[in-house]
Amino acid sequence: MDRLAFDIAHLLAGGLVLVSFMMLYQDRLYALLNIFAVHALVLAASVGWQAHIQDAPHLYVTAGIALVFKGLVIPMALHRMIQRLGIHREIETVIGVGPTMLAGMGLVALSVAVMLQVTEGADPIAREDLAFALAVVLLGLLMMVTRRNAVSQVVGFMSLENGLVLAATGARGMPLVVEISVAFSILIAFIVIGIFLFRIRERFDTVDVQALDRHRGERQ
């Protein structure tokens, strides 16, 4: 049973890394949002499984937030926003898909090498979860720097945050996990959806961050 519990946790955490990779090569916003919803579903399953094997019922709340808020509400809201605002559906990337994927593989190798080395004493599930979580965090960062448009940067940030939730639930008995996931959800909901994109849309004809760069200060 212990072996099975470990294998399932491993499968789900590894699945999260895989879905992060899938996000890297999407070139359409709608597809990206769908993949993000899958990311959130895998996270919810992973957190739910952790709640089950750690016998920590409060983690079900975190899983529920991941499922409902990140798996359904946010992708649907972003979907509607893209439609309503008529944002370009294609994602402009800074570098091509090939180099991005290679960089992603490098980052995953790096995080596994670093984390497995420094956590030798820790319990195996937490170890693997941390290694995968760091990989998801780094892939999220990679996505934020290789994408030009605001919506995909936000999606990158949310996937990064999913990695953090995975790390927090993997650390057995960590307090405040639920509070932290709520704080993150507030951060995302409040700023991104409510205010920024609408304001950016209101003032600019695009949510392409490059267009914002043209308005830099320091003009003569």
Binding site: F196, E202, R203, L212, D213, R216, G217
Partner: peptide, 15 residues
Amino acid sequence: YRTHEALEAAWKYFI
């Protein structure tokens, strides 16, 4: 202030 510059600054700061 919701000017171009203010929005860009806030966006950069946020990210």
